[in-house]
């Protein structure tokens, strides 16, 4: 009588042990695969940064930032100037509607307009940048006869930064406590006064961070500029239309496929500038927007 339960017990025990071994293996394999997935991404990130920074750093000479491009040699002064002009132009154009949309989405989020604008902004982020570039070519470069120009390039970049500025300002304004608004309204201030005088200043660090991120995206864009801004070997002379302008991302794309090591050096130097700028801004914005250590904790809690 007593033997049967013992046999059953040992069978159950064996099954239990087999199951435990299998679960340990599953756990081990699972975690290994997640680590491998992360290592692939981190490794690629490090690989890209190392390639760009090592080759870029050895390609940067004083001439690169003091001379303009001549053929496939010379420097990148014209491209650096052009990138700054186009990116700042685009951002300046995008701030008024982008910030207004952010304010509207956060402060007047009732009715039908706010969800519609939010949806359009989110879809606009997904429209390929080359489509926006081709739209710029069709309407401004060819249609209005502006030719390749600062105006066309800046407007194309503004369209790209618009939804980013809109959504980051909305997120920033939503973090401002409701009590601040109520205090303002209780003192008799109107909607405009409360929003522009209290909410926007309180959320300013996060709003500015969003604008900086949009600036970083603009600096890294190529496709929307190829057929709106064109390319120029010379410094910009201040004409908004009918004068093409250079920019760094064009130098990366076109000079790396040239068969000369001098051209390659310029491409690496341009890649260094663009990547460095974009990564620094991204790290700063993470620090500002981080929930645990960032601006929110210090300013509003």
């Amino acid at each position: 009588m007593s033997a049967t339960p013992a046999v059953a017990d040992s069978a159950a025990l064996q099954a239990f042990n087999a199951r435990r071994r299998w679960r340990r293996l599953f756990d081990y394999l699972g975690w290994s695969l997640t680590v491998a997935a992360f290592a692939l991404l981190g490794g690629a990130m490090v690989w890209i940064v190392v390639v760009v920074f090592l080759r870029g750093a050895s390609a940067i000479t004083p001439k690169v930032i003091t001379h303009i491009t001549s053929g496939t040699g010379g420097g990148l002064l014209n491209a650096i100037q052009g990138t700054l002009v186009l990116a700042f132009g685009g951002i300046l154009l995008a701030i008024p509607p982008g910030l207004a949309a952010g304010i509207y989405l956060s402060e007047f989020d009732h009715g039908r307009l706010a969800p519609a604008i939010r949806f359009f902004a989110d879809v606009l982020v997904g429209v390929p940048s080359i489509v926006i570039g081709y739209f710029g070519y069709v309407t401004m470069v060819a249609g209005l006869g502006w030719n390749f120009s600062v105006a066309a390039g800046s407007i194309a970049l503004a369209i790209i930064s618009l939804p980013y500025i809109c959504r980051t300002s909305e997120m920033a304004l939503r973090q401002v406590p409701r009590s601040l608004r109520e205090a303002g309204l209780a003192l008799g201030a109107g909607d405009g006064k409360v929003i522009m005088g209290i909410c926007v200043p309180a959320a300013l660090p996060a709003i500015l961070t969003g604008i900086l991120l949009a600036l970083a995206i603009s600096v890294g864009e190529t496709a929307p500029l190829l057929y709106t801004a064109g390319w120029s070997n010379y410094l910009w002379t201040g004409h908004l239309t009918k004068e093409p302008i250079g920019y760094l991302t064009y130098a990366i794309w076109s000079f790396i496929t040239e068969p000369f090591s001098g051209a390659h050096a310029l491409a690496y130097a341009a890649a260094f500038f663009v990547t460095f700028f974009v990564l620094v801004i991204s790290v700063i914005s993470r620090m500002v927007l981080d929930e645990n250590t960032g601006w929110r904790r210090r300013r509003l809690r």
Partner: peptide
């Protein structure tokens, strides 16, 4: 991972 998203397409 997030910085990987920030690297421009042309890079």
């Amino acid at each position: 991972v997030e910085l990987l998203a920030a690297i421009p397409s042309v890079v």
